[in-house]
C-alpha cells in the first residue's frame, strides 16, 4: 500500500515543472516544521537534558550541578532497591499485558456482533478509560478497605475478608486489577477495529470447509490480528512500566516494597530526596529495559500474514 502511494506521489511530482517541484518541497517542509519542532523541543531536548543531568549530582533545591561522570550509573548497578523496583514493574507489566489482551480480545469478540444495544456496552466498557486515574485510585482504595465494598461482597457470599492493599501478596494484584479495569476498554476498541477489518468471506469459506469456531479463531482471527495485537501489547507494556499514580495514591510502595514500582522510585528519588541526577540515571535504565522488551515483542509478534 505504502509503495503504491509513494509511486502515485512521485508521478504527480514528475508532472510539475522544476520550479513547481521546488515549491512543492518547500510547502512540505513548512507543513512538517511545526510538528518536527514540537517533537524536538518537547521530546528530544528533554531526553538529552535528562541524560546530561544523569552525569551530574544535581541538587534540585539549590540547582547545584557537580560532574560525576558515570557514577550514578555505577551506583544503579549495586542498588538492590532499584533491581527490586524493576522486578515489581516487570511483574506488573506481565500481569497487565496478559489480562488486558485476553480480556480486551474477549470483550471485543463479545461486542463485535451486530446486535441492537451492543453500542451501550461498548461505551460502558470504554467509560473507565476517560475517568481520572487519580480519582479512580482514591475510590478503589476505599473499595479495598477492610470495611470496603469488595470485602462486604465477599462476606455476603460467605467468603472471608481479604487484606488486598495491606498484603504483600495481594497488593500488586489489587493495583493490577484497577489498571486492567481502567484500560481494557481502550484495548477492546483497538482489537474491535482489527476484528472488523478481517474480511467476512474468509470465515464463510472456512465454515464451508468445515472449520469450527475454535479453528476459525485459531487459524483466521489470531493470525490476522497479529499486527493489532502487537500494537496492544507494546502500548500496554509501555503504559504498565510507567505505573505510578495508583502506587502514589494507594500504597506508596508498600507493603514490604511489594508495589514499589520503578517510576515511583524515580519520582521519590528526584522530588523527595532531591537527587535529580540519580533519578535521571534511573530513567535511562528504565528506557533501556523498555526498549529491550519492545525488541523482543516485535520479534515475537511480527506478522507475515496479509489479508
Amino acid at each position: 500500500m505504502t509503495v503504491v502511494r509513494q509511486n502515485a506521489a512521485a508521478a504527480v511530482l514528475r508532472k510539475l515543472s522544476p520550479t513547481g517541484q521546488r515549491e512543492a518541497y518547500w510547502v512540505a517542509f513548512w507543513l512538517l516544521l511545526p510538528a518536527t519542532a514540537g517533537l524536538i523541543i518537547f521530546t528530544f531536548v528533554p531526553i538529552v537534558y535528562a541524560f546530561w543531568i544523569s552525569l551530574h549530582d544535581y541538587q534540585l533545591l539549590s540547582g547545584q550541578l557537580t560532574w560525576t561522570g558515570a557514577a550514578n550509573y555505577v551506583r544503579l548497578l549495586s542498588d538492590p532497591s532499584v533491581t527490586k523496583a524493576l522486578v515489581v514493574s516487570l511483574l506488573y507489566t506481565v500481569i497487565s499485558v496478559v489480562a488486558q489482551v485476553v480480556l480486551g480480545l474477549g470483550l471485543a469478540l463479545l461486542v463485535s456482533e451486530r446486535v441492537r444495544g451492543l453500542g451501550f456496552f461498548r461505551a460502558a466498557y470504554f467509560l473507565p478509560v476517560v475517568a481520572s486515574l487519580v480519582v479512580m485510585a482514591t475510590i478503589w482504595k476505599f473499595l479495598y478497605a477492610e470495611s470496603g465494598l469488595f470485602n462486604a461482597i465477599l462476606q455476603t457470599v460467605g467468603l472471608p475478608s481479604q487484606p488486598f492493599l495491606k498484603s504483600a501478596d495481594q497488593a500488586l494484584l489489587s493495583i493490577a486489577a484497577l489498571g486492567v479495569w481502567k484500560f481494557v476498554g481502550f484495548n477492546m476498541l483497538v482489537l474491535l477495529g482489527g476484528l472488523q477489518a478481517i474480511p467476512a468471506d474468509l470465515y464463510e469459506s472456512a465454515g464451508l470447509d468445515g472449520a469450527g469456531a475454535i479453528q476459525r479463531f485459531a487459524y483466521i482471527t489470531l493470525p490476522l490480528l497479529k499486527r493489532v495485537l502487537l500494537f496492544v501489547v507494546v502500548m500496554t507494556s509501555i503504559e504498565s512500566f510507567k505505573l505510578f499514580t495508583p502506587v502514589y495514591v494507594m500504597t506508596t510502595g508498600g507493603p514490604q516494597d511489594s508495589t514499589d514500582a520503578i517510576v515511583f522510585q524515580i519520582f521519590r528519588t528526584g522530588f523527595r530526596y532531591y537527587e535529580l541526577g540519580y533519578a535521571a540515571a534511573m530513567s535511562f535504565l528504565l528506557l533501556a529495559v523498555v526498549v529491550i522488551l519492545m525488541w523482543f515483542q516485535f520479534r515475537a509478534l511480527r506478522s507475515d500474514v496479509e489479508y
Binding site: 511530482l13 517542509f29 518536527t36 537534558y49
Partner: peptide, 28 residues
Amino acid sequence: ARSFLAGRTLVVSMVLLGAACSPPGPTA
C-alpha cells in the same frame, strides 16, 4: 526531494537543539 526535506529539517532542528541545549548551571 527526500534529501531536500531531510537536509533543511535537519538544519532547523540543529538550530533549535543548540538554542535549547545551553548547559544549565547553578542558579540562585
